[in-house]
């Protein structure tokens, strides 16, 4: 009898998926409940959640994930820099690059982490972080644009969301639905903790980092920044940190990244523009 309920609910939910009608799913739940069959209503609801979890994560849910991850990034990195002019400048560069990226229709915000390590991160929904230590290494606006382009590419390509959707940890959670974050906070915490661990400790896989380098380079070049600037920054960081220890401890080594960026410049015919805006960068970041 119970199996029949589950089969019926599965078929019903599947038909809803095909029909694309979540309203009908709720109506089905109501009818089952009113007819004295709460178990069937629960089954329809549960199967609907599972079916729903197979669909891509929408922006609202992405925003919840990004915001929660941002809390953890800020907490772990000792807070953010409170220099309004500097923050505004970094955000303007990010917006300039993001506006002609492949995903210009979401808000991007950048915070500067009060930390001397050389690092940058992107959480879903456009939450981007650069450390004060990284800003100290950057010499011009084109280099900054390339760094931000890399992070914007992580967001536009939904790298973290991809990891979350694939993770086995989340597999146990999707039955309750990610949107149940408020009613199942322990499950939500597990998802966020796993994603933060990946972002800050383990790192994304090297393929995603290379992709972010390539796409970020194109984003920065689209708005007119000199594409060679990123090569200059990576080369300098290689001299500073060496190839054995990557800039971001989980990234591919600098030599491989420099080579990939140079291939992108040649393969995509990214023309040198000479626009590096060193003077504006120096003026705006003199208090870094």
């Amino acid at each position: 009898m119970r199996n029949n309920h589950v089969v019926a609910a599965s078929l019903f939910a599947l038909s809803l998926t095909v029909a694309g009608c979540a309203e009908v799913q709720r109506a089905g739940e109501d009818i089952a409940r009113q007819s004295g069959n709460p178990r069937l209503a629960g089954a329809i609801h549960g199967v609907g959640n599972v079916v729903g979890s197979l669909f891509p994560i929408g922006y609202e849910e992405e925003s919840s994930i990004g915001q929660a991850m941002a809390l953890q990034v800020v907490a772990r990195y000792g807070g953010v820099v409170d220099q309004p002019e500097l923050v505004r400048y970094v955000n303007l560069v990010a917006r300039a690059v993001a506006n002609t990226s492949d995903r210009p229709d979401i808000p991007y915000r950048v915070a500067i982490l009060e930390h001397d390590s050389i690092n940058a991160f992107a959480a879903p929904a456009g939450y981007i972080f650069v450390t004060r230590g990284l800003l100290k290494q950057v010499r011009n606006e084109a280099e900054l644009a390339a760094v931000l382009g890399h992070e914007i590419a992580h967001v536009s390509q939904k790298h973290i969301l991809d990891i979350i959707q694939r993770s086995k940890r989340l597999a146990g959670v999707t039955e309750a639905g990610l949107s149940y974050a408020t009613s199942n906070p322990a499950a939500f915490k597990n998802v966020i903790d796993g994603a933060v661990k990946k972002l800050l400790d383990e790192g994304l896989d090297q393929g995603k980092e290379m992709e972010a380098d390539t796409i970020g380079e194109i984003f920065a070049a689209r708005v007119g920044y000199d594409p060679e600037a990123y090569v200059g920054l990576l080369t300098r960081l290689r001299e500073l940190k060496g190839d054995d220890r990557a800039l971001f401890k989980t990234h591919p080594n600098f030599s491989a990244r420099i080579e990939a960026v140079q291939k992108t410049i040649q393969g995509k015919h990214l023309a040198p523009t000479g626009v590096i805006l060193q003077e504006r960068f120096s003026r705006m970041t003199k208090r870094v």
Partner: peptide, 22 residues
Amino acid sequence: PSGTNDTLARLGHSMRGGDASA
């Protein structure tokens, strides 16, 4: 452009039935 909240994503959110972002 596919857009940020395409039809599939909206449907998925609706079926998961949450209010996570309130």
